[in-house]
Design a binder for these strands. Structure first.
Length: 519
RNA sequence: GGCCGAGUACCCAAGUGGUCUAAGGGGACGGAUUGCAAAUCCGUUAUUCAUGGGUUCGAAUCCCAUCUCGGCCUCCA
């Protein structure tokens, strides 16, 4: 099955073929998080979509080598201006952690950290990111457990960044300006703007309101971007031929992608992903830097960008109170699997609206698939006269995903097939040559992309604040009242549980409970 | 000003010129079940695709215009 993917570079859907089609190897660089704060669900939408793409590539037979960077260079500025000014975000994060430490609100598993050490701050947030990502089933985490270099840190690649800048200066693609800062010259690279559409002639200097007029004056072109900033007062700084300072924030991806994925291909990689906001300037600048140093016409051959997530129809922001991390949602009773499905179920090139209603929708959806899976496992040795509905639907499921990752279409195919199984009853005895084991296998293959059924088990309540003992006592109390037909008391206890945010289900085998998800 | 997107039922959402008299999920409603619920199971739920034109034998799908909404144009996934 051929995968068709929309390529931001060409602005159209294309057939995906790797650089080396024979080997079935695909090199995939996913722009990862900045680690000076907790990642929020908007960040995770982008990472999860990259994960889905990777899983689809694997489903159709590719061998994917994926890298995801952990941006620990604190040079990202905290003020509104470009070209590196203002306070270091890693420093701000350190101050925040220091306050949290004093207030005793730091997670207990954080250990002893020194908030004045930017590397320790980065470690803290990398650790948090890995934990969240593991809960959400990002495959890159399991890879990095074995090969930590697959989740590289820019601070360990500064030497290579300096080499890249030197090469760009040699090639006349970069220059040292009168303020001592090294800039990339966008006019030296005719293809600048190909990815984003923001060609130098179209860029209205300062239109976004984030450009400092003073820096504009020293640059050859307003779109020229910083490669190295000498600044000895900076928290994170490294020696360089242009003075002690820090690298431009686009360098890291160029250097790490080429080092880890492009050694044998002169710096060309197959896929590069990120959020839509990365297209410009970040990815545009990466292309310019990389191609000007390798001489190749391409950096990544396919560019994959996920559109933004909004929350309850509003742009997510801390001031609106609709800014959520994974742990915020888990504390409200959501399972990681439901969060994963809610974040991947809208097509990656459509804006997605995260809602609590959608989250409960997703949870119920997963519960139904999980019941189906359990039922198939129970009956896997039973036989069928013809291929079962899931087996029959698998090609259509894959075809939908191969159509530019049409995940809603794929889920529709899955549900259509799933509804043909009567999970409330045992299958009728049949002597056919097909078995329910094949059905289970088909479901597992579908879930190899969705990635939610394995998460179901780990949707534990351990990190929530429920009083399990108290809940069990109340359930016992209610069941005692029920057996003596004291319905009034039984209902009162049930209401009490609901007030605690606990829903109960009376099954033939006993009573089970779960947290009620609410905003 | 430039460049991208999007508008399909109560909600999410597929569909990209011909079994579309429009998938799938949720919700709602009706039924089975239940002490009553919840959960589960069965059934019902868009003659219509933002609006107005056009192309075509045929349009939710293509074209034009209008309206509305969102994103980017050097913090951002």
């Amino acid at each position: 099955m051929t995968l068709r993917l929309y390529n931001t570079l060409t602005k159209k859907e294309e057939e995906f073929t790797p650089l080396d089609p024979e080997s079935k190897r695909v090199t995939f660089y996913a722009c990862g998080p900045t680690v000076y704060d907790y990642a929020h669900i908007g960040n995770f939408r982008s990472f999860l979509n990259a994960d889905v793409l990777r899983r689809v590539l694997e489903l159709v037979g590719y061998d994917v080598k994926q890298v995801m960077n952990m941006t620990d260079v604190g040079h990202m500025t905290d003020d509104e201006l470009a070209d590196g000014a203002g306070q270091d975000k890693m420093q701000v994060a350190g101050q925040r952690l220091l306050e949290a430490k004093k207030a005793g609100t730091l997670p207990t598993d954080a250990g002893e950290i020194d908030p004045t050490d930017p590397y320790a701050v980065a470690d803290f947030y990398v650790h948090a990111f890995i934990e969240d990502s593991r809960k959400l089933g990002l495959k890159i985490i399991a890879d990095a457990d074995k090969q930590p270099e697959l989740m590289p840190r820019p601070t360990r690649y500064v030497e290579q960044m300096i080499k890249l800048v030197e090469k760009l200066i040699e090639n006349d693609h970069a220059y040292v300006a009168s303020d001592g800062v090294v800039y990339f010259s966008v006019q030296s690279y005719p293809a600048y703007g190909e990815l984003s559409g923001n060609t130098p002639d179209k860029i209205r200097s300062g239109e976004g309101g984030r450009v400092d007029e003073k820096t504009q004056l020293v640059k050859k072109h307003p779109a020229d971007f910083m490669l190295w900033k000498p600044d000895a007062s900076h928290v994170m700084k490294w020696p360089s031929p242009w003075g002690e300072g820090y690298p431009g924030w686009h360098l890291e991806c160029s250097v790490m992608a080429v080092s880890l994925l492009g050694q044998e291909t002169n710096g060309v990689i197959d896929i590069h992903s990120g959020g839509e906001d990365n297209i410009f300037p970040h990815h545009e600048c990466e292309v310019a830097q990389t191609c000007c140093s390798t001489g190749e016409s391409h950096f990544a051959r396919y560019w994959f960008h996920t559109r933004f997530l909004i929350v309850e129809n509003q742009k997510m922001s801390k001031s609106k109170g609709n800014f959520y991390t994974l742990n915020d949602l888990l504390a409200k009773g959501a399972s990681p699997a439901a969060v994963r499905l809610e974040l991947i179920k809208t097509h990656y090139r459509s804006q997605s609206n995260f809602t609590f209603r959608g989250l409960t929708d997703s949870q119920r959806q997963i519960d139904r698939w999980a019941r189906l899976k359990t039922w198939l496992e129970t009956n896997k040795n039973e036989s069928l006269n013809q291929p079962g509905p899931l087996t029959a639907a698998l090609p259509a499921f894959i075809a939908a995903l191969c159509n530019d990752l049409n995940i809603s279409g794929a889920i529709g195919v899955l549900n259509d097939a799933a509804s043909k199984h009567d999970v409330a009853n045992s299958p009728e005895n049949s002597k056919g040559k097909f078995t329910y084991a094949a059905e289970l296998d088909a479901l597992n293959q579908m879930d190899s992309v969705l990635g939610v059924l394995d998460l179901q088990q780990s949707a534990s309540l351990s990190d929530t604040d429920v009083d399990v003992k108290r809940i069990e006592e109340l359930i016992e109390k209610r069941n005692a009242a029920r057996s003596s037909k004291d319905w009034k008391e039984a209902d009162r206890v049930r209401d009490e549980l609901v007030d605690m945010g606990i829903a109960i289900k009376d099954n033939p085998t006993g009573t089970t409970w779960s947290k009620i998800v609410s905003s």
